[in-house]
Amino acid sequence: MSLLEVRNLRKSFGGVSAVADLSFELNSGEMLALIGPNGAGKSTCFDLLSGQLRADAGRVLLEGRDIATLPPQSIWQLGVARTFQVPAIFSSMTVRENVQMALISRHRAVWRFSRPASALFRGEADTLLAEVEMARQAERAVGVLAYGDLKRVELAIALAGSPRLLLMDEPTAGMAADARGALIGLARRLVRERGLAVLFTEHDMEVVFGAADRVLVLDRGALIAAGDPAAVRENQRVRDIYLGVE
């Protein structure tokens, strides 16, 4: 059984179809890229998988269990973590506290009043920050971080949930070229070492074709191509979409 199985997923907004009859599978230890032009439905698709939006129809099976109607909190508890296109972080906290917050939630310590939050799971938070190369900035306010660093913090927050499935919405947008490589390299390592499954969107085609095991191409909400990177790259319809149809 695949870790994630999406069947006939649909979502429309005010009559406009954002995701139309989307089906795909994703296995543990696999890195799957979701690409497509603006408005193709990538972010909507992410929101449907993580419970931020509710699908009009279709099923999202995580190890066979339908999670399509669960709220985001519950989906997270089942081991699905995500990052957002525009980083969603807690701006009134330090870098470390952001990660501690996620750890507190995972260890179900939200309603514990015996110790201040900033003293809980410090070591674990620092280990995660070291993984994303943010250990030296642990004490800084996230509000002053560079954009690329925010993306790293967000990744550490997502990893704090010990996910089986990681959804990354444009993880490298706003980062310099070498930093992009490093971040995607980290994601690849996690996939290999922990058997994590990763679904990500990305505009940098070098990153997509360098890192993904398989690529899905969306256009106007519909899946128009899927397969290994080389095949997708040669696909005429994909080329048309990217360069524009005459």
Partner: peptide
Amino acid sequence: GVAVLLAEQNFRFA
């Protein structure tokens, strides 16, 4: 005589 600055990703349209 109106100048146009177009932002596009669709090359064939441009």
